[in-house]
Simulated scan of single mutants.
Amino acid sequence: MEDEEPNGPPVVVRQMQLHLDGIEPLTDEQRVEAWLQEQEHDTADTRTAALFLRDRRTRRARAARWGQVQELQAPFASSWGWLFPGGSESLWLYHEAERAYVEGFPLAALLCAHAASERVLAGCLQGYEDEFDKRWRLWGLGPLVKEAFQRGLIDEPLHDKLMEVNEVRKVSAHFKPPLEPNSLHVRAIRRADTKPELGDEEALDEIAEADALLAIGAATELMRGEQGCWRARWG
């Protein structure tokens, strides 16, 4: 079957190369890069080619981050599944956090894991809503964590993790002065000062990834562990 657009990257990669003595054949990446340099316009094919190169170059890093997520999930493995009182959205948000982290978007992973935890805790507390102020469904993660802890739905270590997630997310999701002590940027500067071998971008990436893993780990414990909905009152 012929390609619909014969000048696209699939043709570049599939082209046969002659084996000549003393001449090394080009790799797929080199062939695609050379093809890209010849293109004058941005098209679906050039974008496909760019994604092809990105996939090859970032695969090992993505696999390593995938392994980090799996390590966080391993202690909470279940043969039958889990209950999610926050609705389908909580599960979607959790999976979006996983995927965002693996793909190299730690801030998005932090925001999604935070939102998933918030929805799950609200679902756990729904059985007590007759005891709350009518506006309780507008509570953010901080008040939800405090109320869940006071009612014994979560233990102190998970309480502390979720409150830390709330703080590191807050300084990124809400406007703060540039030199806010807990901001991602300021913490990255401090990290670079203590680890001179790190460049500014590397220090920033390291802090952002640590925040994302903290959030995914806390959400995993809340959603897949034996706290939260397992201790909640229903109805």
Rank of each mutant, 00 (worst) to 15 (best):
1 M>N: 07
9 P>S: 10
9 P>C: 06
9 P>Q: 09
11 V>N: 15
13 V>R: 08
14 R>K: 14
15 Q>I: 08
15 Q>H: 13
20 L>A: 15
26 L>N: 04
31 R>C: 03
34 A>E: 14
35 W>Y: 05
42 D>C: 00
46 T>H: 04
47 R>W: 10
49 A>N: 05
50 A>V: 09
50 A>W: 10
60 R>F: 11
62 R>F: 09
62 R>E: 15
65 R>L: 08
69 V>I: 15
71 E>V: 14
73 Q>Y: 10
76 F>N: 04
77 A>Q: 15
80 W>Q: 13
91 L>I: 13
93 L>W: 05
98 E>V: 10
99 R>T: 15
100 A>N: 11
100 A>F: 04
102 V>M: 04
103 E>M: 12
106 P>R: 05
107 L>T: 07
108 A>I: 03
111 L>I: 04
118 E>R: 13
122 A>Y: 05
126 Q>F: 14
129 E>H: 08
134 K>P: 02
134 K>F: 13
134 K>I: 11
135 R>V: 05
137 R>W: 05
140 G>A: 06
142 G>I: 11
145 V>I: 15
148 A>V: 06
150 Q>M: 10
158 L>Y: 01
163 M>D: 00
164 E>H: 07
171 V>K: 06
173 A>V: 12
174 H>K: 08
185 H>S: 14
191 R>T: 06
193 D>K: 13
195 K>I: 08
195 K>H: 15
196 P>R: 14
198 L>M: 10
199 G>S: 14
200 D>S: 15
202 E>N: 02
203 A>W: 08
203 A>F: 05
207 I>Y: 01
218 A>E: 05
219 A>R: 02
222 L>S: 03
226 E>G: 07
227 Q>P: 01
229 C>W: 08
229 C>D: 01
230 W>R: 15
230 W>A: 14
232 A>N: 00
235 G>T: 11
